[in-house]
Amino acid sequence: MADVVLSERVAAAGLDDRVEVVSSGTGDWHVGDPMDRRAAALLTREGYDASAHRAQQVQRSWLDDCDLLLAMDRANLRDLRALGAKAGSVVDPERVRLFRDFDPLEPGTEVPDPYYGGDAGFRDVLAMVERTSDALIDALVRVV
């Protein structure tokens, strides 16, 4: 959901010529799959286009090539940092952070995985993603 929402916010802010949003997982178990049908349905109801999203696995090169990598939870944050360590590089903690470090209401908290819950969990996550994406856009406008 964050990929779809943030990509739309980047385009709406006129930053899509300078900011590229890429989404991935640290594991390979969903590569090539569309997003969860409940997440896609909610996004569609809220006016987003989730149809093009496909899961992919993070690439080691992104740790060097991307200006900012955002993890949804601490386990994925550790995985990203470990990926750099395996390659013998130190990952700048300012470039690899939690997505919700930018959340104006609850900075530094994790995005809960709504997969095993009901529809309310997806709505809660969408609200977190939207407000955090808005705050990210505000930060990006100042630096790009």
Rank of each mutant, 00 (worst) to 15 (best):
R97I: 01
L83W: 08
A41R: 12
L63Q: 09
V58W: 00
S24Q: 06
S23K: 14
L77D: 05
R97N: 04
G84V: 02
V91G: 04
D36W: 01
P112L: 09
R81F: 04
L126H: 06
K86Q: 15
D119Q: 15
D33G: 02
P107R: 03
R18Y: 08
A127W: 07
L105E: 15
H53A: 08
Q59C: 07
L63V: 10
E94Q: 14
G47Q: 06
R95M: 06
D101M: 07
A55L: 10
R78D: 13
A13T: 10
S24W: 08
Y48M: 00
D64M: 11
G47H: 02
Q57H: 04
R37S: 12
D33C: 00
E110D: 15
A39L: 02
Y115C: 00
D64F: 10
G118F: 00
D119K: 05
G84A: 13
L43R: 03
A41W: 02
F122L: 02
D103K: 05
V96C: 11
S24V: 06
R45M: 04
R81M: 10
W29R: 14
A41G: 06
P114A: 01
G121K: 04
D64P: 02
H53L: 07
G88M: 08
L63G: 04
L70N: 07
L42M: 08
F99L: 13
A120W: 02
Y116F: 13
A82K: 12
D92F: 13
A40S: 14
A52M: 01
D103R: 03
D119M: 08
R54F: 06
S51P: 01
R100S: 01
D113K: 06
W62E: 13
L69I: 15
E94M: 09
R78Y: 06
R78E: 14
R97W: 11
D119V: 02
T109M: 03
V91R: 15
S24I: 02
R37W: 05
L63F: 09
A12E: 15
T26I: 12
G121Y: 02
D49V: 00
R100I: 00
D73R: 03
P114Y: 01
F102H: 13
D64R: 15
S24M: 12
A82I: 00
R45Y: 00
G88A: 09
Q56P: 05
P114N: 05
A12Y: 08
E94Y: 02
S51W: 00
R60W: 07
D28T: 14
V96E: 05
R81H: 14
P112K: 07
A120F: 01
G25W: 12
P93Q: 08
D28A: 15
G25N: 09
